[in-house]
Design a protein around this nucleic acid. Structure first.
Length: 659
RNA sequence: GCCGGUUUAGCACAGUGGUAGUGCAGUCGAUUUGUAAUCGAAAGGUCGGGAGUUCGAAUCUCUCAACCGGCACCA
């Protein structure tokens, strides 16, 4: 493109129109040249895709878009500015508090502060009030570039050690940018809106939490204040409502309300499954078992307690033993006051298995395997124990004892792709059956530190990539994110309220077959190393059930519902008929309960609805005479009457598991 | 593991130094009811564990634990 004689530049607008401006024109000037109202509404500008300050000069040809409150981009700006306002408010109210960093996050922002006295949510009212004052005052954001050493000195003198450290660690080439809002200023990359006024009023502080400086558990613990900010009060209200809704589907709450399971402190992090919860568990396990059988897997069961020598050999002892439960292998002392075990006991230790793979290799290693035996797919509902940090435990989502829908595929290098394809298809079918349509896939490639030759990695990565392409799955590639022992594919499902969960995984392992000396006899009569694929679809049965409960807000599909149907009577004159209905449903394989209590039908309907029973068969004198039932389904306020036989047929058909 | 919060009847919660309360559930009694809570009665507690301060502690202090919100961790 030829430049015009003067220093003019070409600015392309989102509608494709192109205009000429003098070089150094600012975003604000561009907005103003388009319309006064746009200039007034403008918050920032996108220059060649990059969000930038309105006040910055544009020096070359660019395509730009003025950002106003109507744009999604505004959220990012509002939240970032709100974080600055929060920091100023906190420093106004609590002198001596140091500021550190305050980025935007999904749905909001946070700011980390260093202060001897931690904040409490009781301080929120005062902080928010101060924030509103600052916004109301509406100081303009002013961008300045400072000399590095001066900036460091300034923050050090001010007692802001963290900010000084941040500047010291910035690359030499980086400008030291300072944003001023009235009296207050902060080191910041930007961009910001023209003034704090534009933060608006639709923000709210949500919670305080501890957070390590620079995310490093060896460094100081800071106090983090989380907030949310939106373009208007309506958006804020909607978000707060969404938070409340998410709280209502919390699987821990529903688990108690629906009498599915409990935890108690004598077995922290391990589930006590109640009859209803275990019904769900068994249905899930049965479903996966049928799927695996159909896909050519052989199910096995391996020991819970294994000598640490095997874990030493597999490498787990060296790497993960701090998370393993270790048991001395000795008959305990029966003397009441004596030590439970002698010191000698520690000569032999057993460990509860934290994973199944070494045990599966032991099964593979029995007898001589021929290339004709491959691929060998060994599956186990493997119960594993991991000594998770106390603070990590979270309902069913993070437990110390869990059951994986685990399997290991032993195959030849040339079988990687077809096995990966088959797995991707199996996984997609399972997720679809369980109600998850939206799956995000990531292919993690070789890290710096790794075992195995580059040729092997080339082959493996290409094998997985090709498999994903063949299955037609969209995927993202993450270079450097693979495990040291091989590349992997991670699958993330999205639930009904938009949260994502990483459940499925397919990991290639070049390490373990080597360490545990797995081999097979090839066509050439020589010994070869098999490739090992670790794979799981649900991941942990416990966790996946938690995800299912939250995804369905407790209203599980019929085949998983612990109680599928309740037969409820209107008065005791129908008791005899209700009993017949109940028996017939049981006969048809429906998990059914009979409710002949002396209660009003309103009471029964409410109770079973709250209990999330999917189908309610109400019988009174009328139904007894007609041989029918009045059906009321969960979530509906209406009911319809049907002949008993037909009603059972329909319910039984619907109650059939998807596979 | 770290920071903060919480812990009172089966569940949800009130009670800030002076005899432990409410609602629901459960039990008993009455009611026989047509699609989201019928009425009444009696009963139910080592106030998370331990130690301390005090004439006196659910309440104040210390300590341990569990849980909750984050952080760190997640083979």
């Amino acid at each position: 493109m030829g430049q015009t004689a003067t220093n003019d530049i070409q600015i392309t607008l989102p509608d494709g129109a192109s205009r000429e401006y003098a070089a150094g024109v600012t975003g604000f000037e561009i907005a103003e040249s388009i319309s006064k109202s746009l200039a007034k509404a403008a918050l920032a500008i996108r220059v060649n895709g990059e969000l930038s300050d309105l006040s910055l000069p544009i020096t070359g040809d660019a395509s730009v878009a003025i950002v106003t409150r109507k744009d999604e981009d505004a959220l990012e700006l509002i939240r970032h500015d709100a974080a600055h306002v929060l920091a100023e408010a906190v420093q106004n109210l609590f002198p001596g508090t140091q500021v550190t960093i305050g980025p935007t996050i999904e749905n909001g922002f946070y700011y980390d502060f260093a202060r001897n006295e931690p904040f409490s949510t009781e301080d929120f009212e005062a902080i928010e009030k101060e924030m509103r004052k600052i916004v109301e005052r509406g100081a303009a954001f002013e961008r300045e570039v400072w000399d590095r050493d001066e900036a460091i000195k300034y923050f050090k003198d001010k007692g802001e050690a963290y900010k000084a450290e941040l500047i010291e660690d910035l690359p030499e080439t980086e400008e030291i940018k300072i944003y001023r809002q009235g009296e207050w200023l902060d080191l910041c990359r930007g961009p910001h809106m023209p003034s704090v006024k534009q933060v608006g009023t639709a923000f709210k502080l949500l919670k305080v939490a501890g957070a390590y400086w620079r995310g490093d558990s060896d460094k100081a613990m800071l106090t983090r204040i989380y907030g949310t900010a939106w373009r208007d009060d309506k958006e804020l209200k909607a978000y707060l409502h969404q938070l409340e809704e998410a709280e209502k589907r919390d699987h821990r709450k529903l688990g108690q309300e629906m009498d599915l399971f409990h935890f108690q402190q004598e077995a922290q992090g391990s589930v006590f499954w109640h009859p209803k919860g275990f019904t769900i568990y068994n249905q899930m396990e049965g479903y996966i078992r049928r799927r695996l059988q159909d896909a050519g897997y052989k199910e096995i069961k391996t020991p819970q307690l294994i000598d640490n020598k095997l874990w030493e050999k597999s490498g787990h002892w060296g790497k993960y033993r701090e998370n393993m439960f270790v048991v001395p292998d000795e008959v305990p002392n029966t003397e009441e006051d004596g030590p439970v075990v002698s010191d000698k006991a520690f000569e032999k230790l057993m460990a509860l298995k934290p994973m199944n793979c070494p045990a599966h290799v032991q099964v593979f290693n029995q007898g001589i395997k021929s290339y004709r035996d491959l691929p060998l797919r060994l599956a186990e509902f493997g119960c594993c124990h991991r000594n998770e940090a106390h603070g990590a435990l979270h309902g069913l989502m993070r437990v110390r004892q869990f059951t994986q829908d685990d399997a290991h595929i032993f195959c030849r290098e040339d079988q990687i792709t077809e096995e990966a394809v088959a797995f991707c298809e199996l996984l997609q079918n399972v997720y679809r059956d369980l109600g998850f349509e939206d799956v995000a896939v990531a292919l993690s490639l070789r890290p710096e530190m790794r075992v195995g030759s580059d040729e092997l990695w080339d082959k493996a990565e290409e094998g997985l990539r090709e498999a994903l392409q063949q299955t037609g799955l969209e995927f993202r590639e993450d270079p450097g994110e693979g495990a040291f022992y091989g590349p992997k594919i991670d699958y993330q499902i999205r639930d009904a309220i938009g949260r994502t969960w990483q459940c499925g995984t397919l990991q290639l392992d070049f390490n373990l077959p080597e360490r545990l000396d797995a081999n097979y006899i090839g066509q050439d009569g020589e010994k070869h190393r098999p490739v090992m694929l670790h794979r799981a679809i649900l991941g942990s049965l416990e966790r996946f059930i938690g995800v299912m409960i939250e995804n369905y807000a407790g209203k599980l599909p019929l085949w998983l519902a612990p109680t599928q149907c309740v037969v409820a009577t209107i008065t005791e004159t129908a008791d005899g008929y209700a009993e017949e209905v109940y028996e017939a449903l049981k006969e048809a394989g429906i998990r059914v309960e009979l409710d002949t209590r002396n209660e009003k039908i309103n009471y029964k309907v409410r109770e079973h609805s709250v209990g999330k029973v999917p189908a309610l068969f109400v019988v009174g004198e009328r139904e007894a005479q007609e041989g029918s039932v009045a059906i009321r389904r969960l979530g509906s306020k209406k009911q319809h009457v049907e002949k008993l036989e037909r009603a059972i047929e329909e319910l039984a058909a619907e109650a059939k598991p998807p596979f």
